[in-house]
């Protein structure tokens, strides 16, 4: 299933559409998402709760909740492999070896009845990385040292570790087979701030050492600024702005939503009485508005926004999906209006 690919491309998601079917509604979680990531790159995927960040990551792993969540359109190419049409056995071979995922809460991500050594060894055994148990054990020791834990503790159980240490174990499991892509779903949200910094620092070091590409899902722009090369801002299941960190943080022109996001960060140097949030709520994903999905909250909304879904306009690799960017911007080639929910 290998296809010819650009030299550095690792993951290419095109027009991805994912829905959840619940008892009372069809929820459109991801609506025509386009995303590319190159080898060794770190991409920050930013957006508020319910924007579809985790759903996107789970689609890449093909671990959407069975019977409830399903991909209804688009394609995902990971290292030339068509994820959406791959067989289950092929997917098992990929998970944990080519692509790994770190989940949000380290407290519940580890199996309480297995030692952490076993849980790390397991992923090596699943992917036949070593022929005998001695080599597996040696690798477990090595990877534990890599994430800053003492190998002597490999026979202990998860409840004997603190939250930050558990997240290190989770990262050890994810990186044990040196995957090409790591999906980190808010890896530090459940940790306190000092531990957050340690874990992020460690992830960055490991990434440089192992040349792993990372998609860092977060809603913390500070974390993004520290760790990422590129940023993609997600809103209501689509990417509304992408660019290098430098562009996103310093360019003049932005999507109004991005402006709102940055505007809502309190400035430590100024005295303010109130926070400055974006007005309104994210639209109900089972009943998305026509046109631009942000128009109901957008302070710059014009007539066209209410009816026509905007395309992305790219300037110097900085892409913004907004009608106000239309003039002068170049529409992305090959992009259709297929991402709309009409």
């Amino acid at each position: 299933m290998k296809t010819t690919d650009s030299k550095n491309g690792l993951l290419k998601i095109e027009n991805l559409q994912v829905e959840y079917i619940t008892d009372d509604a069809r929820v459109f979680a991801v609506n025509g998402l386009n995303l590319e990531i190159e080898k060794g790159e770190t991409l920050g995927l930013v957006g508020e709760t319910g924007a579809g960040k985790t759903t996107t990551a789970l689609s890449v792993m093909r671990l959407l909740p069975p019977k409830v969540g399903r991909v209804i359109g688009g394609s995902i190419l990971l290292d030339g492999i068509d994820i959406i049409h791959a067989g289950e056995a092929d997917m098992r071979a990929l998970r944990g070896s080519l692509v790994s995922m770190i989940f949000q809460d380290p407290m519940t991500s580890l199996n309480p009845v297995l030692t952490i050594g076993d849980q790390i060894a397991e992923v090596l055994i699943f992917h036949d990385r070593y022929n005998n148990r001695t080599d597996v054990n040696r690798r477990v020791d090595e990877i534990l040292r890599l994430v800053g834990l003492s190998p002597e503790r490999k026979n202990e159980y998860p409840h004997q570790f603190s939250g930050g240490m558990k997240q290190r174990v989770v990262i050890a499991i994810a990186l044990a087979c040196e995957p090409k892509l790591l999906l980190a779903d808010e890896p530090t949200t459940a940790l306190d701030v000092t531990i957050q910094a340690q874990v992020l620092e460690m992830m960055k070091e490991l990434q440089e050492k192992l040349h792993t590409a990372v998609i860092l899902i977060t809603h913390d722009l500070g974390v993004v600024a520290q760790t990422c090369n590129r940023v993609a801002i997600m809103y209501a299941g689509e990417i509304i702005e992408t660019g290098t960190v430098d562009r996103i943080f310093h360019a003049k022109r932005h999507h109004p939503y991005t402006e709102g996001l940055f505007g809502s960060i309190p400035d430590l140097t100024k005295k303010t009485r109130r926070l400055n949030p974006i007005d309104g709520l994210m639209p109900d994903p089972s009943n998305l508005p026509a046109g631009c999905k942000f128009h109901t909250r957008c302070p710059k909304c014009i007539d066209i926004c209410r009816t026509i879904h905007p395309r992305s306009s790219v300037r110097d690799g900085h892409s913004i999906r907004c009608h106000l960017e239309g003039e002068g911007g170049v529409p992305v080639a090959g992009e259709t209006a297929g991402g709309e929910q009409t």
Partner: peptide, 12 residues
């Protein structure tokens, strides 16, 4: 969650 972790490791 740990069941999902096990699946993400590529367990059968």
């Amino acid at each position: 969650d740990y069941i999902r972790t096990a699946m993400a490791k590529g367990a059968t």
